[in-house]
């Protein structure tokens, strides 16, 4: 019984991972791609790890899987945040469908000061 639940978790995780990769290909620019990959890959990978934990139980590998879930949830958004900020600061523009960019408006004065 517990094996079946674990396999269901692994399958759902794989499906969400697949959606994340599909978003990485289909969406137009860095920021939208980061959104898709961060959300789907975080939950998908956590699902796979949790399914693994359910199947093998409190062994050495199972406990490590639980630790990996905590570290993934804590670090994946931080990595996405760092990549998005770095991309914006090095001049990657939003795609042409975008309707507003408050960040560029607020940072304009600052970047002029940096270059002079």
């Amino acid at each position: 019984m517990i094996d079946v639940i674990g396999l269901i978790f692994i399958t759902v995780g794989l499906i969400f991972d697949f959606f994340g990769c599909l978003g990485l290909i289909r969406l137009p620019d860095v920021y939208n791609r980061l959104q898709a990959s961060t959300k789907c890959v975080t939950l998908g990978t956590c699902g796979i790890l949790f399914g693994t934990f359910l199947i093998i139980g409190f062994t050495a590998a199972g406990i490590k899987a639980l630790l990996c879930i905590i570290f993934l949830i804590l670090t994946a958004p931080v990595a996405a945040h760092a990549i998005a900020r770095g991309a914006h600061r090095s001049g990657v523009n939003l795609c042409k469908d975008s309707i507003i960019d408050k960040y560029a408006q607020d940072k304009e004065g600052e970047s002029v000061n940096e270059t002079t």
């Binding site: 289909r26 969406l27 620019d29 898709a36 795609c95 309707i99």
Partner: peptide, 17 residues
């Protein structure tokens, strides 16, 4: 995300607020 990625016309309207 799954809905937006699977939709054939990509219903997105991105921006930074």
């Amino acid at each position: 995300v799954a809905y937006r990625v699977l939709h054939p016309r990509l219903p997105i309207k991105p921006g930074i607020v």
